[in-house]
Amino acid sequence: MFAYILRSLLQGAVVLIAVAFIAFSMFRFVGDPVANMVGQEASMADREELTKHLGLDQPFPIQFLRFLGKAAQGDFGISYRQGRPVAAVMAERLPATVELAVLSAIFATVVGVALGVYAAIRRHGLVANAVMTLSLVGVSLPTFLIGIGLIYVFAVELRWLPSFGRGETVRLGGWTTGLLTKSGLQSLILPVLTLGFFQLTLIMRLVRSEMLEVMRSDFIRFARARGIPNRVIEFRHALRNTMIPVVTIAGLQLGSVIAFAIVTETVFQWPGLGALFVNAVQFADVPVMAAYLVFVAFVFVVVNLATDLAYLALDPRLRAAPTAAR
């Protein structure tokens, strides 16, 4: 088990370096940050000087190695756009993204599994069919449209909820949270619905089809033959056996929810990492882009590891024969 974790971590490090390399080699296509960093009065000489000062005149391998060397020491440089250390800026933005992502994931998983199970059990029911049809809308509607739609209904027309921002936040050590104030909680509702909607429909459809599959299998039939009540069959035997693929997908989705909340954060002016990244791309703020992409890779590595560990908890067969089977 320990060896397994260690090996996963090593693989993770290789992934991080590879991502950094690919990201770095693409930055030249994002444009020249110097053009954004100086005012229109700057002379040609000023621009050249700044380019040299930032080391942007160096060949790509040297720039990359320098970045790796500093990043290994935890130094991601100074944001070109804000003139502040990248690590500090990202640490400031992280709580907003994590709160949004975790709440969306919980919302999507709980509601998704519940609706999925319901749709599987009442396969021919009217409500189940309506839910299934609606879920198609969720899969196919782009996130920003859902977001804008929710804003117009709940913020502009009904004026129940705020249209942008995080509301009032409370500082707890290095973490800011919106969970402890009324305006903070209100501000969370629309972004969480928007970000979680796609995952919800995905999980729901997955649970339903897996469950239908399991319900047809032999051990369920035998369970019925033994006269075990339906509730117990459905929730104890069938649901548990549908969870393996669901956990995989939900885990991967959590990674992508943290990493790619970009659209939702932009629509709701949510002060998280995604909004930071969008601004960085438009400014060609290389230090922030590099750090963000490495961070995203890191999140995926960790989430994958956690998903693997969750299998162990859910599937006793994996526990019985740990690494020897591989």
Binding site: A155, V156, P162, S163, F164, Q269
Partner: peptide, 18 residues
């Protein structure tokens, strides 16, 4: 002073009185 990047959200915030 609040930056709101998305055009639609910025206009919505004015319409909703925020």
């Amino acid at each position: 002073y609040t930056p709101i990047k998305s055009d639609a959200t910025r206009v919505a915030a004015l319409l909703s009185g925020e």
